[in-house]
Design a protein around this nucleic acid. Structure first.
Lengths: 330, 330
DNA sequence: GATTTATTTGTTATCGGTAACACGCTAGAT
DNA sequence: ATCTAGCGTGTTACCGATAACAAATAAATC
């Protein structure tokens, strides 16, 4: 492996000089500069950032902890984050928490062991005591994404899920619906989904329009669960005019069941999802949903990181707008 | 920041002893073990892997370079890869090449500067000379994913895109179609897509069934481009009975245009995509497509990495199966 | 009780880079 | 000619860990 010393030897200077030349610091004559560059080039030298970071005590690494990389919203966020951090030579390493506080704790420990310059983590999870202690002790600049409701003095970027529930409720009430249901899945661990549900239910209830809440802590948040629980809802009996689902995947599952059962959508039943379907995938039926722009979150996070690395303190609480994304199911 | 020395001081032993205890190496009495553990716990010590890696000359880092994180297939691969590498305390670094050889070169350099123990990169891209030189020089164990056609002595995991084209052609021919078209987009940089196209065209041509090839190097591979190019295809005149698209997004765009134009699908025109739509998102119309299981690729990659880190050499060329994923558009 | 052997712990050097400062040299001021 | 600046380059110490070996302590053997 080629090291600074190798380059120094070839260029007949000290390692320090090479270090200075390659980083563009200090005063170096043009003559030695070119000699060093040539030597580095000839040897194909690539600096060892592990050593560099250890020495400078700053790492150029950004740690990202999210529930799941396969989740489009997070993939989107990371993608735009990457392209913006790239220019500043900040590298991204990722870990999945799977929405589990215990896993989160372990992963944060792993991530911190690389001494990142910044930590991005998804909020909306009930972190363990130790996790909080760890973050406090390490005092890594960090930002919490996705959960815009619960700043608690943290730097936060994300939408308000309370507002999402309210938007959904308002939408149904403005359509004049009097019989509305909510369909969810396991939400003990997902504080954001819980908040959407609670605020939705509260507003619908206040209007006297709530007929049913179908949730099951033992089913995953997938299309199949949407099918299952919607079937359960239909069996329960009460006529329903509008259903708000935990997410788009479940809403699509629900849609399938409703259509198969002969319900007309949106004439008989309106269906509303949350965050997930992409316009790219829409052929005929487009699910009406409430969504946030992941790229926007990515940008806000990148801004905060670049500010922090530059020694400044970022704006503390950025609320991302939610939009009712009209389809043809409501 | 808490260091080994801090723990050692508190436990009244040397740093070496602490190091041994925490890594479980060497012979240490139970007595000191507990003292050390307690001290580490009390201080909330998290080892510094930068320092550790520098010392041991092995990094426990896995670098991943893919065209785009937002692409579901890669997100899927990374997700399963992460869960499998997690147990071995291997961390994942990601970077996007955007299918651009120049960007790839820069990103590989960035990634190599972290001295990863393993490099995963997506193939199907015409790497620059310098990139190849760099990889050769560094001699990092690495695996090439996605492109299963072109081993070139490399360790490779992925589907054969030549075969994908053949599967598509066979499918159309078995349906008895005599007028078949291909619709693509910019593919100079994407060797895999080119291979699919070429082998598809060759086989369709051999059967005398090719009526049109519509590609445009200046449009991105999105649904909108599918719409645009399908419109162009329809305007061109020749009657078409089957269209194979570069990917699912474009196929879905095409579907929209075809349906709007009054074509019945699949009665009048059959539509076939490649890799992308998820069953989760399907409501009524499900695009027939050819796909590979990203999780399977992830597993194969994880196996190779774990073997490599364990000092073994992995199997060199794993061809992932492609399946014709039936929908209702062919 | 002396010697060997096993067990446990500590010392020193090193990984590849960088900060801080020291040194040598040339050039202009006196 | 001597002194001082300032530029260019090198020295030394350290970042936080670990490998390899040395030392100290305890246990076992004769």
């Amino acid at each position: 492996m080629v090291t600074l010393a190798d380059v120094a030897r070839l260029a007949k200077v000290s390692t320090m000089t090479v270090s200075k030349v390659l980083r563009g610091t200090g005063a170096i004559s043009d003559q030695t500069k070119t000699r060093v560059f040539e030597a580095a080039d000839e040897l194909g030298y690539v600096p060892n950032r592990l050593a560099g970071s250890l020495s400078t005590q700053k790492s150029m690494l950004v740690a990202v902890l999210i529930p799941s990389i396969a989740d489009t919203i997070y993939a989107e966020i990371i993608s735009s984050l990457h392209s913006l951090l790239d220019r500043a030579s900040l590298s991204i390493f990722i870990a999945e928490s799977q929405m589990d506080p215990e896993v989160e704790e372990r992963q944060i420990q792993e991530l911190l062991s690389l001494r990142p310059a910044f930590l991005v983590r998804s909020g909306g999870i009930a972190s363990t005591q130790r996790t909080q202690l760890l973050l406090q002790r390490f005092d890594v600049p960090h930002i919490q994404i996705w959960d815009g409701d619960d700043p608690q003095g943290q730097v936060t970027v994300g939408p308000s899920h309370v507002e999402a529930g309210k938007i959904a409720a308002r939408h149904f009430l403005e359509l004049g619906l009097g019989k509305v249901a909510y369909v969810g899945a396991e939400t003990q661990l997902d504080l954001c989904a819980s908040r959407r549900m609670d605020s939705f239910i509260a507003d619908i209830n206040a209007a006297g329009a709530l007929v049913s809440v179908v949730t099951d802590p033992d089913v995953p948040r997938q299309a199949e669960s949407g099918e299952l629980l919607t079937r359960r809802l239909l069996e329960e009996g009460p006529k329903v005019e509008g259903i708000f689902y935990l997410n788009d995947a479940m809403a699509i599952g629900g849609l399938r069941v409703l259509l198969k059962a002969g319900c007309r959508v949106p004439e008989d039943v309106r269906v509303l999802g949350f965050n997930g379907t992409s316009r790219e995938q829409t052929i005929n039926t487009r699910l009406t949903t409430i969504s946030t722009d992941g790229h926007r979150i990515g940008e806000a996070v990148a801004d905060a990181i670049l500010a922090s690395v530059g020694g400044q303190v970022a704006e503390s609480h950025i609320l991302c707008p939610l939009t009712l994304d009209p389809g043809n199911t409501t």
